[in-house]
Each structure stands twice: as structure tokens, then as C-alpha cells.
């Protein structure tokens, strides 16, 4: 019973850290996905007097990632049919060149304005129109929630780390005599702390499996039963297989750091 209790006292704070980190990763993925949607939604219409290339736009602003020319011939031909004495070719020559441009990442209103001004100021560009919904306020809300979440996770990690170290000190106390005997016989710090590393690594592994298992359950079982369309469409964001490696890596780093802190902090006592 004591053995199980000792492990639970270690696994719980580790779980708190890993759940916090996994939640943050999920939220991060969601906000990146949202940004992707916003970015895809967003474009600018540019009217230019002379034909333009992507490199020409990128010289004006590096944030421009792609462009496409709007084919005007079909519209012009329809327009020419309704007008007498003017050929489609004349209209084509009179009209400027139309381009839509896209960006490498989601940009806020200020950045869009800057690009717009840079484009308009350029010789050969007649007009710039911006389209797309204004997601600025919801985007800022997203950023705000992200900052709050990371702050909370940071605080929780710090507190849990303290509990992890305390538990490790309890383990060290219960194994003190064994570690001291080994020290007297010339064992290195790593060798005599092996028991702490072993125990902590097993518990870190358990915490990793539990956290990954919970989020995998949410993705593969719970979401399907929830019938919430929005979540069902975005189920991949809830859990990714590489999360197991990330959580495992973080758990092991915490364990190794904690053992080192505890071992370095302890002094040889007389037997």
C-alpha cells in the first residue's frame, strides 16, 4: 500500500504537468488551424497597369507568398457583345491587369494596411482592394486565450515540479542508507542514484501513457460518440502520435532534472 501511495504521489503531479502541456499543444494546433483557415480566406485584389510577376510583388513585400492572374477575356467578350463599335480587344487593352495575392501567414489589420500602402505606392499599381472577413477580434481572443493557457500551464508545471522534487526527496530519504553504503564503497553519483532514476522513469512512463491514452480516447472514441460536427471535423487536432514522444521526452527531462537537483543537493552523512 505504501509502495502504491509513493508512486501515486509522484504520478499525480507528473500527470498535472503532462495534461497541461498536452492541452496547450491541442490548443496550439487549433489556433494554428484557425490561422490557416483565416489565411486561406484572405486575399487582396490588385489592379496593375503593367503585367506583374510574383517576384515583383515579393520585392514590394516579402509576406506575399503567391499570386494568381484573374482571367478577364471571358468577361470582356460578354461585355463586347452588348456594345457596338467596340471590339473585345479594345476593351482588353483598356482594362488593367487583375491579380489576387495571398500571404504566407495570417496578418492583422495593421499589417494588411502597411502592405496595401506599399503596393499602392508602387509605380504600375493602380488600385488595391482587400477582401475577406475581418477576423481580427476573434484572432486576438485566440491569442489571449493561448497566453492565459500557457501562463496557467507554466504555473501548474512549476508547482507540480516542486511536488515531484519533494516526492523524490522522500524516496531519497527512504533509500538514504543504501545510497550512503554505496557511496562509502566508492559508487558514483549516477550509480547510487540509480534507484531514484529507475523509479521516477517508470512513473514518468506511466504518466505519459495515461495522458496519451486519455487524449487518444478523446480523439478516437469520445468524439465519434459525441456527434458534435465541429469536433468530428477537427478530431486530428485533439491527438497526434508524435505527442507521445513529446510528452515522454518532457517527462524524462523533468525526471532527470529532478533527480539531479535532489542528488546534488544532498551531502554525505556519517554512517
Amino acid at each position: 500500500m505504501k509502495y502504491i501511495k509513493e508512486h501515486i504521489m509522484f504520478i499525480f503531479p507528473m500527470l498535472a504537468i503532462l495534461l497541461g502541456i498536452e492541452s496547450s499543444m491541442v490548443f496550439d494546433r487549433m489556433s494554428r488551424d484557425y490561422e490557416k483557415d483565416l489565411k486561406a480566406d484572405y486575399s487582396m485584389l490588385v489592379l496593375a497597369n503593367t503585367p506583374m510577376k510574383l517576384s515583383g510583388f515579393q520585392q514590394l513585400d516579402r509576406r506575399i507568398s503567391s499570386m494568381s492572374r484573374i482571367e478577364k477575356r471571358t468577361i470582356v467578350q460578354e461585355m463586347a457583345q452588348g456594345m457596338s463599335g467596340i471590339s473585345a480587344e479594345d476593351i482588353m487593352q483598356a482594362l488593367p491587369h487583375f491579380y489576387t495575392i495571398h500571404f504566407g501567414r495570417y496578418l492583422d489589420v495593421q499589417e494588411i494596411d502597411k502592405i496595401k500602402h506599399a503596393l499602392v505606392a508602387s509605380e504600375g499599381i493602380e488600385k488595391v482592394e482587400t477582401f475577406g472577413k475581418s477576423h481580427n477580434s476573434s484572432y486576438h481572443l485566440f491569442i489571449f486565450i493561448k497566453v492565459v493557457l500557457w501562463t496557467f500551464v507554466g504555473f501548474m508545471t512549476f508547482t507540480s515540479l516542486f511536488l515531484v522534487i519533494k516526492q523524490m526527496e522522500i524516496w531519497q530519504f527512504s533509500h538514504r542508507e543504501r545510497m550512503q553504503v554505496m557511496e562509502i564503497f566508492g559508487a558514483s553519483t549516477m550509480l547510487r542514484s540509480g534507484i531514484l532514476f529507475k523509479r521516477a522513469m517508470i512513473d514518468a512512463l506511466i504518466a505519459t501513457v495515461l495522458t496519451s491514452g486519455l487524449f487518444a480516447f478523446l480523439r478516437f472514441v469520445w468524439i465519434k460518440q459525441s456527434h458534435i460536427d465541429l469536433l468530428m471535423q477537427k478530431e486530428a487536432l485533439l491527438f497526434a502520435y508524435e505527442d507521445i514522444a513529446i510528452l515522454g521526452g518532457i517527462a524524462m527531462s523533468i525526471v532527470i532534472t529532478s533527480v539531479i537537483i535532489v542528488v546534488i543537493g544532498s551531502k554525505e552523512r556519517k554512517l
Binding site: 562509502i184 564503497f185 566508492g186 559508487a187 558514483s188 554512517l271
Partner: peptide
């Protein structure tokens, strides 16, 4: 010291 101790046998 760690190295030196490996040459000792200590009885308590």
C-alpha cells in the same frame, strides 16, 4: 576520493 574508496574494504 571515490576512486580511492574502491580500494578499501570497510566493515561496520
Amino acid at each position: 576520493l571515490q576512486e580511492l574508496r574502491t580500494h578499501f574494504g570497510i566493515i561496520f
